[in-house]
Design a protein around this nucleic acid. Structure first.
Lengths: 339, 339
DNA sequence: CGACTTTGCTCAATCGATGGAGCAACAATT
DNA sequence: AATTGTTGCTCCATCGATTGAGCAAAGTCG
């Protein structure tokens, strides 16, 4: 009632006064342990009704300050511009909520400094866990968390100091390469090596995928050209420029490619179209990642879809069992042939 | 030092003890107004160093409990599965941070109940603003906010009780329809009406787009078939099924379409391929939304790209000026022709 | 040298919710 | 009737940071 000028939010003290009872009774009723605190059911009902009428909402800041567990879980994610991370975030939110956790998510654009800053901010909010997704330097986040007594976990890209859940990049990549090699041979009428493009050579996933890429070539007795492994970064322009540069070199651009992410694929597609390599002479493609429009619109592409639900199930499994070891869980991805 | 068993986080009291000073001095130094509070610069330096060494991070819960403004800003978003919302979220985060605000984002999957629940939860966290993006029932969120003295704002879909920032759907749709009609006439050799598919007839954007769609037909003297306006919802399957159903009817499916969102376009593409309408006989398309792969891979499509940076600039403009009226800002979208 | 200002810091109340401890009132038991 | 148990509630310290008020010491001025 006494809501002065800039009406302050209703508190348990306001409700207590209105109900003619104490703040602790109100608190007990509203947070559900009024049975344990032996509050009568009539009073409970009266308070509940009042709270509803007044549009009361707990002040989480006050509540969390007092409680021991915050139930807040943070996730750091590089971008929202592709289906993979989009579905990670969406699944993460849903699963966190199902478990009574409050998810907070921050996008850092693959900038290591921003990753640290975001982690520090999350620690200020008393998160209980930080999930570093596709982080450039996950171990630094883990160190920061450890200093604050907070658990952390790596998703998509592994770290050495916290449990990590990633796709089985080597096996996935080897199988993808096999399939593309078959398609390429069928088209070309002879065996020929593929071009590898996209990703960062320094990151674990890219290097494992390169290993799988090479292994599949070796199996088939095809020599890989080291010149044709272009871990040029993820951004579309990088892939596009790398192909432009290669075009001017001797031998030009192979018409069979392993593209390391849909982001890079965007650049590859741009190059294909700008250089007139579309239509019947389009390259044979493989992409380590999935996009619905590519799957529908591209004729000759094999895609690997990372198993996001399985990955996040594994993440929450680790959270629930509280396993502390810097284990590495590898989730097999799923294969999708276009059309 | 006295960090017991489960090491608690370092607090200003710990730092005060270590520095042989008071908690209020520590607080003043660490939150930057030590000049105003006349703390000596040597002590300030000593405290800063100590805080760094101990890996101190403020307890936001405690800090926010005491302060008047939380600097937290919430956003409710339907999905993360397309470029439009992805870029809204990414831009929102960046712009919020640039302004010293802490963004929290929740995805509600277009479920009105979840929207309300999410808003309630955000209010518990003392958000200062809630941005309802593409919300099914934004006015209910506004009411909830108003009761708590919190400002709200609608993005993408307008509401009647809070300022709204949306695309100029009518003009955008009319222009898109004009372009597709031209392409369709060129292909067909005669004037013919388009099919409208996707979206919810009950939402403002869809109904405005239908108006623009009709207006463009009227301009050209083409009769629209009311049977061919299918606001069947956003999900891909809905669009796919709607086309399947139409196929069996007399007249079949027109080979010129206005698709209301990339999500629906996914279903349309599936239908096109499954029903064998791809290749040279593919339909002439227009899509109110943009996706890079569609732009690159589709031959005969016109797309409208909603101007996300301009929309969010307008959002933060309203937030900064604090305008209270339930105004409607319409941002012109940008046209993209494939290839 | 005494009055006054400035500097540099500390004290203690406060934000709102929580939960251990405790206190009446009444019921049940011996 | 005295003791013990149960029910239904209230009191108050507490979480950590913030901030108005206040106090001692040093500096300034006439």
């Amino acid at each position: 009632m006494n809501r002065d000028k800039r009406q302050k939010r209703t508190t348990i003290y306001d409700l207590a006064e209105l109900a003619g009872t104490s703040a602790s009774a109100v608190s007990a009723v509203l947070n559900g342990n009024w049975k344990k605190r032996r509050i009568g059911s009539q009073l409970a009902e009266r308070i509940t009704k009042l709270a509803e009428e007044q549009g009361y909402a707990v002040n989480m800041q006050a509540s969390l300050l007092r409680r021991e567990k915050s139930k807040i879980i943070g996730m750091i994610v590089p971008k929202y511009d592709n289906r993979y991370f989009g579905s990670i975030v969406e699944t993460f939110e849903t699963m966190a909520r199902e478990r009574g956790l409050f998810p907070i998510i921050t996008c850092t654009g693959r900038d290591p400094e921003l990753e640290i800053e975001a982690a520090r901010e999350m620690l200020s909010y008393q998160v209980e866990w930080i999930i570093s997704t596709g982080a450039t330097d996950p171990d630094r986040v883990t160190d920061l968390c450890a200093a604050a007594g907070v658990r952390s976990l790596n998703l998509d890209l592994p770290g050495s100091k916290a449990p990590s859940v990633i796709s089985d990049n080597f096996t996935g990549s080897r199988e993808l390469t096999r399939r593309v090699l078959v398609n390429y041979e069928r088209k070309l009428g002879r065996k020929s090596p593929l071009l590898f493009i996209g990703g960062r050579g320094s990151d674990h996933n890219t290097s494992e995928r390169i290993k799988g890429f090479v292994a599949a070539h070796v199996e088939k007795g095809i020599d890989v050209d080291a010149h044709h492994i272009l871990a040029c970064g993820y951004a579309p322009e990088k892939a596009e420029h790398a192909l432009e540069a290669l075009q001017t070199e001797e031998g030009g651009v192979p018409m069979g490619m392993f593209v390391n992410s849909t982001i890079s694929l965007e650049g590859v597609m741009r190059w294909i179209i700008r250089s007139g390599h579309n239509g019947p002479m389009a390259p044979t493609l493989g992409c380590f990642d999935w996009d619905p429009f590519v799957a529908l619109l591209c004729d000759d592409i094999e895609m690997v879809r990372q198993d996001v639900p399985a990955m996040l199930a594994s993440v929450f499994d680790i959270i629930e069992t509280g396993s502390a070891t810097a284990s590495l869980v590898q989730i097999p991805p799923v294969f999708v042939t276009s059309r």
